[in-house]
Amino acid sequence: MSKARIRLPSTAKKGEVIEIKSLVNHAMESGQRKDSAGNPIPRKIINKMTCSFNGKEVMNATLHPGISANPYISFFVKVEESGTFEFAWTEDDGNVIKETAQITVG
C-alpha cells in the first residue's frame, strides 16, 4: 500500500553536496483519533527513517505522531563515489518500506 518516492540527481561530481527528497505514502495514524463509533483508532505511524549509501548509514530520523500524513523529508548528502542509496521507513508494527536509488559520481 505504501509507496515511496525518491528524487535525487542521477549524476554528481565527486565531493558534491546533493539534495535528496523523499516522500512516502502513509496515513501516519496518530492514535489520537476516534472512529465514527467513538473507538480510538490505534496508532500506526512510520517511527523511523534511515538512509544508507553503499551500506553506510548517512541519515536517520525519528518520526513522531505529530507528523502529517505522507511524510516528506529532504536532506543533503556529500557524495564521493558512485553507488546506491537505500532508504527504509519502519512502521510501528515493524513493517519496513524500502526503496533504493542510484547515483553515478564522476
Binding site: K3, R5, R7, K21, L23, N25, N70, Y72
Partner: peptide, 13 residues
C-alpha cells in the same frame, strides 16, 4: 510533481 502536488500520486496509484 507528486512532491509538490499530492494529488498527482494518482498518476501511479
Amino acid at each position: 510533481d507528486p512532491f509538490v502536488n499530492p494529488a498527482a500520486e494518482a498518476f501511479d496509484t
